[in-house]
């Protein structure tokens, strides 16, 4: 309890890290709901990795060309990382969505290749850029320690915007996802709504990767939504439960990591994994009890 009281104190040194974890924990699952519904789970794996490759590329290229010296990099590295992450995420999500719409080839194959190539490029860039090595390793490991107030504000603003747009246009996004043909007969511009949804996914992934790294971004995007799907009875419950699981895991994960000195990101994801296992057991038990009850009644 003392640790909990400590981390919630207003003068807690790592409060920005806690706030950003909770922000990501609450917001990512709401976008993840659409990834699960559209059966784009692999995209949820590949996109954070591609986004982090964007960070690596955007930081490396200016140094290779001598535009930026390592000793001056710190002042603009966030702007570069933000740009790289956003550009790569949006380009990847729109390209993958376009290829999916064409309906040719294997989507899993494309996403798997994109994931593997993005990971390889990140590692190759890491190996040739000693300046960035430490920071990137922290990002890849999900170390959420140094979060500036500016980063926190920017993340809160972008994720707030994403959630506002998702909330405002949820009926259009749901209709286009559930029954595309019906949406066309109702005169909806399905390409516009698809692009909007993919932009929201890309923005969320970029912010999450910049804040907590690709591993944690993936964990919060998909695992809460997968757990929530087993218990929710309607779409509103689905979104609410997923978001609540994400937020609660972020707080509990941060508390465990701080109390026992673990890295925050992997702790959050491991906790979500435990939650997923408990969820599966609970569903199996519920189904078993349901069958027995039916057998008794009949």
């Amino acid at each position: 309890m003392d640790t909990l009281r400590e981390i919630f104190a207003p003068d807690f040194l790592l409060r920005n890290s806690l706030y950003i974890s909770v922000l990501i924990g609450v917001a990512c699952p709401l976008v993840g709901v659409f990834l699960v519904l559209r059966r784009l789970v692999f995209m949820g794996v590949a996109l954070p990795q591609i986004s982090s490759t964007g960070v690596a590329v955007s930081l490396s290229i200016p140094m290779w060309f001598g535009i930026l010296q390592p000793e001056h990099a710190a002042s603009i590295e966030h702007a570069l990382a933000f740009t790289g992450s956003i550009v790569f995420s949006l380009a990847a999500v729109l390209t993958l969505a376009f290829l999916e719409r064409r309906g040719r080839g294997s989507p899993e194959g494309r996403l798997g290749t994109a994931y593997a190539v993005a990971t390889a490029i990140s590692i190759l860039l890491l190996s040739k850029n000693r300046y960035a090595e430490v920071g990137w390793l922290d990002l890849l490991k999900g170390e959420i320690i140094t979060v500036s107030t500016f980063d926190l504000t920017l993340t809160a603003f972008v994720l707030g915007l994403v959630l506002a747009v998702l909330g405002l246009f949820q009926k259009e996004l749901l209709l286009v996802s559930f029954d595309r043909a019906m949406a066309i007969t109702l005169g909806k511009n399905v390409v516009f709504w698809d692009v909007l949804l993919y932009l929201l996914i890309g923005l969320t992934v970029s912010m999450a990767v910049l804040s907590v790294g690709p591993l944690v971004a993936f964990g919060f995007l998909l695992i809460p939504a997968l757990i929530a799907h087993s218990f929710a009875r309607n779409m509103r419950q689905f979104a609410f439960i997923a978001s609540a699981i994400g937020g609660a895991s972020a707080v509990i994960g941060f508390w465990i990591a701080y109390r026992w000195d673990y890295p925050v990101g992997p702790t959050d994801v491991a906790l979500l994994g435990v939650g997923y296992a408990i969820g599966i057991c609970a569903v199996k038990t519920r189904n078993l009890l349901g069958h027995r009850k039916k057998a008794l009644v009949s």
């Binding site: 996802s177 559930f178 029954d179 109702l186 005169g187």
Partner: peptide, 20 residues
């Protein structure tokens, strides 16, 4: 053609008719 992953009630589906 409808994916059972969507947690929509009969009313939710019928409601889509008024979205135009």
């Amino acid at each position: 053609q409808f994916d059972p992953l969507y947690l929509l009630t009969g009313f939710d589906v019928a409601l889509m008719g008024v979205y135009q």
